[in-house]
Design a protein around this nucleic acid. Structure first.
Lengths: 342, 342
DNA sequence: GCGGGATATGTAACTAGTTTCATCATGACG
DNA sequence: CGTCATGATGAAACTAGTTACATATCCCGC
């Protein structure tokens, strides 16, 4: 109960420490950074003064001087998606382990908001930036941040900008589609429908290309009328209804499998299958994208193609810390978790 | 294609802008802050120079001068829990809307790590701090941060520290327990088992007290042998097995309902019920805690008691922005989402 | 006892903005 | 036409650290 807590206590500065320890601010700074030798006696005095005043030097001032903070920004497209959460966890664990801090912002798929956030992050003189949002990112500001020394890592999409400080960490999206196809084929399904959110993104187009090419190698053509594009991410996959009705004209049987190529697509498609009363996997086998905590406990435990989300985060963080000096494009392999839905 | 991007371009400072616009740095600063009048002519010159150099002033330097950054720290116990994600989303939306940024750190239930993170956040001279971790928080550093002007908000637990800048936003935990009891009673269940993670926390004790008191009002005693404490958060709720076997001595019937009082507890208990082959709700009705995206699509769609997670985040953020001047303790009402598991 | 080299320490300048205070120009009024 | 008030503007001091440079001190050898 020392003193009234309502009073705003002035924060001790390096000058206060220097005064109390009867040394110069330079000596205090040297004790803190350990860059130059200080006599054991003064060292002890300084440490005692720091302890006594509970001095915690301002990282802001340090960053002003060095021209760069030890913060790393993470801009995600949608925090509700557990994949992004794991990604952030990966980045965060590496960065805070190294004494840095993570700025997290949710792009909410709003270009204006994303622009404002990137400007605010630039004003923080970040050491690095991890971007997962696909749409509406202004490449101009990203390039300028890289020009001025920030390491930028695009995750889940190719960098798309040629710059020695702009990198990318992503999964082999064609392999994602191929993995889904081969598994469904091995389960005896050949009439596959694909659910996507938006074919405007390179990643989703690549996944579709992957499953198409793999199917073609087995002599199966995955036609456009079996591809559903959700567009809105808040409604169930109504279009799926139509696609499931596509029947065997020209030797094609009815749809006997669905591959959802995005995290949200997985939820929406599963939702719609349940609503339509389709039996999984008896009527239709189902392969989703991105694993999640509850996937094994659904009415029909989900088979999913997964990205190594946590690893993608730690790799992105290491790219920032290591400053490779040249553009790095790291492509990781997806994997398959088989459960009862196929 | 102007210039090699590999060269680190020096960042323009306020002095560069002043030079180019042929004014003093004071005038540039005035244009930026809008605090004092500048002639239309010079204003235009300055804006042109800012545009031309793509000048973005350093928030670090501004924060050094004002003694406080516009950042807000959020320390969460476990990012995998969707409740925390919604909470962070709530804080983030309000803070970035106001031009600030959010520092996110994952405590990982590790006291030493949490301590290091709080020190790093203190070094950032944060405007505010949201803490959701219950265990291992060093109250000393939190109090000192508040002493030095940061608004601190504990979420999901009482503040526990009396200080005009230390607040709390939480749900009425006793009402959580009462809500679960009343619903199960209305469904004709009276032999309820409760699954908790750790009764060391005040919140979980309060939820247990809530369901006990509500049961007692209906003449039912919820004895200790029907309370499971998980301790480890990574294994299924093995103890539940024993509890379900508790049979009708002294007029008590077998357990016909389970209330899981935490988010993780909900997963673990559900997992165990599935493993034991218990039919939900036929054999045992199940009420969980905290809603999640997939809850309606489980084999047995989950009835849950929910906290207004997003609102708790926005309220915490507003407490920081509004700086109420006195300690605020905001207690919100829980609600019930009824599905097929009861 | 004195010159030389190494080491510790302080002074002052530096980082990039903000703000106070003095100055200068302009315009209104007597 | 002089006086005073008003308002824009710049010089310089300020925020809280770091570091280059100068100086003080010490020990060693001759």
């Amino acid at each position: 109960m020392s003193g009234t807590p309502s009073v705003l206590r002035r924060r001790p500065t390096i000058a206060d420490v220097a005064r109390l320890a009867d040394v110069s601010t330079a000596t205090v700074s040297r004790v803190l950074s350990g860059v130059a030798k200080v006599s054991a006696e003064k060292q002890a005095q300084v440490l005692r003064a720091i302890e006594q005043l509970d001095y915690n030097p301002s990282d802001l001032t340090r960053a002003v001087f060095s021209g760069r903070s030890n913060g790393v920004g993470v801009l995600v497209a949608d925090m509700r998606n557990p994949y992004y959460v794991d990604l952030v966890r990966g980045v965060e664990s590496v960065i805070t382990e190294g004494g840095g801090l993570v700025f997290l912002a949710n792009g909410s798929r709003d270009p204006e908001r994303q622009q404002a956030i990137l400007r605010a992050m630039d004003a923080q003189r970040l050491r690095g930036l991890v971007i997962t949002a696909n749409r509406g990112i202004d490449e101009g500001i990203v390039r300028r941040m890289a020009d001025r020394g920030a390491e930028v890592v695009f995750v889940t999409r190719p960098a798309g900008i040629s710059h020695p400080r702009i990198h990318s960490v992503r999964v082999d999206d064609e392999a994602v589609g191929a993995l889904a196809w081969k598994h469904l084929r091995d389960r005896g399904r050949r009439n596959v429908a694909v659910v996507t959110q938006s074919l405007d993104t390179v990643t989703q187009r690549a996944r579709l290309r992957g499953i198409r090419d793999a199917a073609r190698l087995d002599g199966v053509e995955l036609s456009d009328d079996r591809v559903v594009e959700l567009r809105s991410s808040d409604e169930p996959a109504r279009g799926l209804n139509e696609v499931l009705k596509v029947r065997g004209d020209a030797g094609r049987g009815p749809v006997d499998a669905v591959f959802a190529a995005t995290g949200i697509g997985t939820l929406r498609a599963y939702q719609e299958l349940v609503d339509l009363g389709v039996r999984v996997p008896d009527d239709v086998a189902f392969v989703g994208f991105d694993d999640f905590l509850w996937a094994p406990y659904l009415a029909s435990p989900l088979t999913v193609v997964t990205q190594p989300s946590l690893e993608m985060g730690t790799r992105a963080a290491r790219l920032i810390i290591d400053e490779p000096g040249t553009a790095v494009e790291r492509v990781l392999a997806p994997s398959l978790t088989v459960r009862a839905s196929t």
